[in-house]
């Protein structure tokens, strides 16, 4: 799973989940199974920027690389893994084209 593939992903928050930002972290509940997720600072930044029109690469460059010293390839790979994990739980949609 490389950075080229990551750059084509446009994450979008699932419409049917309930989420709140509390003290800088997002708490998400999926009504399908009442499962609960809490995202750390980086995850929260990705979640909040996941509007379906911004690519994951743009999100990573703006929200992660812009505020930390992590290299962009590593950050992108980590972000994709994170986004796919959320998508697997049905709380984030991953599109290959902008909405």
């Amino acid at each position: 799973m490389g950075a080229d593939q990551v750059s084509e992903l446009y994450p979008l928050r699932a419409a049917n989940v309930a989420a709140r930002v509390f003290d800088g972290e997002v708490i998400v509940m999926n009504p399908a199974d009442s499962s609960l997720f809490n995202l750390n600072e980086t995850g929260t930044a990705i979640w909040q920027a996941a509007d379906g029109t911004t690519s994951l690469r743009e999100i990573v460059e703006r929200e992660i690389c812009g505020v930390s010293e992590i290299d962009s390839d590593t950050a992108l790979a980590d972000a994709e893994e994170f986004a796919r994990a959320l998508a697997g739980h049905g709380i984030l949609l991953l599109r290959t084209e902008p909405a």
Partner: peptide, 9 residues
């Protein structure tokens, strides 16, 4: 809570 219902969640 048991219901799979976005509005109630």
């Amino acid at each position: 809570f048991f219901a799979q219902d976005p509005k109630l969640v």
